[in-house]
Each structure stands twice: as structure tokens, then as C-alpha cells.
Amino acid sequence: MPPLTLAHQHLPGVTVVAVTGEMDATNRADFDDYLRDVRSAPASRLVFDLSGVPFMDSSGLHVLLSCATDCLRKGGVVHMAGVQPLPARLFEITGVVAHIPVHPTVEDAVTAALASERSM
């Protein structure tokens, strides 16, 4: 299993969180802690770059959804980008795609997140 690697970049108006590796119960706490540290404001605009995530189980999904719920509750927006086939199937089965926009590229997701910011 590829180890989970996390990185982020604060861009004007949005934070991009790049995730690489498999997301599962073995690294759930690390991912959750990292997201708590990265979020610079309660109403953050977040883009998750998941192009490096070949596999995600319900533990990884739970962390993403908890972060997204908290962000949305506080007036922020969350978008996902580059979702690979297995995580995409998980999002489809669970209905996540109906609530969190998914984009083919990070650039598309950042553009959409910033547009959402202007319409709020």
C-alpha cells in the first residue's frame, strides 16, 4: 500500500489539499489531524486534489465528509478534483457526488470554488 502523503497550498481565496496514496483506517487519524491544521479559517474554500489516490475506503470518505460538512456549515465551499476510478465509484455509490462537486482538474475545481465564493 502506498503511504499517505499530504501537502497543501494556500492560493488567493482557496486552499488546495493534495492527497497521494491510499486512504483507509490505518491513516484516517493522520488525515483528519492534517486537515484541522490546514484550515486557516472556519469558512475555508477547499479543493481536494485526489488525483494521487488510487483507493479510498469508508474511513477516508468519512474524514472528507466531516471536513466538508464543517466547512459548508460555516459558509465555505468544498470541491474535489482528479478523482480516480475506485474512489469515484465510492462517491457514486454513497451519493457524495450529489453534494460535493467533482472536477476533472485542480484548475477547474479552483475556478469553480472561487466562483462559488463570489456568488455567496
Rank of each mutant, 00 (worst) to 15 (best):
H62I: 10
S66V: 15
L65G: 04
V19K: 09
Q9S: 13
V53Q: 08
T26Q: 08
A7N: 13
T111F: 09
V102P: 00
A88M: 14
K74Q: 15
S40H: 12
A98G: 09
H62S: 15
A115R: 15
T111K: 12
E22T: 12
E92Q: 14
V47T: 10
G52D: 06
S40D: 10
M56Y: 00
A43W: 10
V16I: 03
R118Y: 03
L86F: 09
T69Y: 07
R89Y: 08
R39F: 01
H79A: 10
V19F: 01
F55R: 10
A98V: 02
F31W: 08
A68C: 06
S40K: 11
V83R: 06
V110R: 08
T15S: 05
A68S: 13
D37Y: 13
T94P: 00
A81D: 07
R118F: 00
E92F: 04
P101G: 11
D108F: 08
I93Y: 02
S119C: 04
V53K: 09
A7M: 06
H10Q: 12
A68Q: 04
D32M: 01
V16T: 10
L46C: 02
A25N: 05
E92P: 00
T15W: 05
G13M: 12
N27T: 09
T105R: 09
L86T: 15
P3E: 11
V63E: 05
D49I: 04
P104F: 06
M80P: 03
P104Q: 12
D30P: 00
G82M: 12
D49F: 12
A68L: 08
D32W: 06
V14N: 07
K74V: 13
C71H: 08
L61N: 04
V83M: 04
G82S: 09
A25D: 03
L64T: 03
A115H: 10
T69V: 11
P54M: 11
P42K: 15
A81H: 12
L64Q: 09
A68V: 13
P54N: 11
V106D: 03
E92R: 14
M1Y: 07
A88F: 10
S58Q: 12
V16C: 09
R36Y: 02
C71V: 15
F48W: 04
P101H: 11
R28P: 00
P2I: 06
F48P: 01
M80T: 15
F55V: 10
R118G: 01
L6N: 04
V53H: 06
F48V: 04
V96Q: 03
H10K: 13
R45Q: 14
M1H: 11
P2A: 14
F55K: 12
F91E: 03
H103L: 06
M23T: 01
A68E: 00
M120F: 07
A112Q: 12
H10S: 14
L64I: 12
V17L: 05
S119Q: 10
S116E: 07
E92I: 11
G21S: 02
D30F: 08
T26L: 05
A113R: 11
V96G: 02
A25Q: 05
S44I: 06
G75P: 05
Q9A: 07
P42E: 14
L65V: 15
V63P: 02
P87W: 00
A43F: 00
M56K: 01
N27M: 08
A18S: 14
T94S: 13
L11R: 11
L11S: 02
R36A: 12
V83F: 04
M1P: 05
G95Y: 13
T111M: 07
F31E: 01
A109D: 00
L11Y: 07
V14W: 07
M1T: 14
I93T: 09
L61E: 06
